[in-house]
Design a protein around this nucleic acid. Structure first.
Lengths: 113, 113
DNA sequence: TTTGTATTTCGCAAAATAACGAAATGTTTT
DNA sequence: AAAACATTTCGTTATTTTGCGAAATACAAA
């Protein structure tokens, strides 16, 4: 009944990516994994992050669910690394939020403060 | 006494931006404001978004707090628009999360799955 | 098979988020 | 001054998120 529309898929997707990145620990993990230019053990990460092992595991799970990272079993460890494909997609989605880029003139004329 | 380090400022900042963008309504608002290439009244937005006025007001407040939008009083309305400067900064922060871009070779050699 | 190591899941409590309607604020029009 | 309008704040409730320690799982080494 309500004329309220729903969100379009791209809106929901970007929100979901943002949610996965909405916690400092998770940003830290992403940053770390990228800086290593390789993978990381969960056990290594726990030393650098102010949460316990179980909480870290949860954060890794959420990043994995969002597709931003991936885990590879490499006994007796699990190596985590960035999912480059999905990361690139996420970055594009973020860039394209403004799919109609405005000129500086328009931007300036828009808001006085 | 815990050896746990804290987050660096850039990590916290990016997490905060991501948190502000972690809700579909807020993504929609950002998208809308950018597409208009101008400003928007809260009253206009409420017709396009599946939340009530008070909830919308909260979302606008959060986006404003994060610096992504700005409100300009233009009686009897309040016009909202994107804060271009901060948006550009946010986008850069997002792009630079991976400050050491990896080559495709490294990326491929990292994870088998 | 038993032990040890690495990680995740479970159960729970505290805190944060989201949404609503009602009331409040501020401004314009009558 | 009163009525109308746009928006925000308040008070409340329901849901989600976060984090911890304990228990469970998975695997390798002894």
């Amino acid at each position: 009944m309500s004329p309220k529309p729903e969100y379009s898929p791209d809106v929901s997707e970007l929100a979901q990516i943002a949610k996965a990145m909405s916690h400092p620990v998770r940003i830290y993990i992403l940053k770390k994994l990228s800086q290593m230019q390789s993978c990381c053990y969960s056990g290594d990460l726990v030393l650098e992050v102010p949460v316990g092992r179980s909480a870290l595991s949860q954060h890794l799970k959420e990043l994995k669910f969002a597709g931003l990272i991936q885990g590879e079993i490499e006994p007796p460890f699990i190596k985590y690394c960035i999912n480059r494909d999905n990361w690139n997609k996420a970055q594009k989605a973020f860039e394209n939020l403004f799919d109609a880029p405005v000129s500086d003139v328009n931007a300036a004329s828009c808001c006085s403060i």
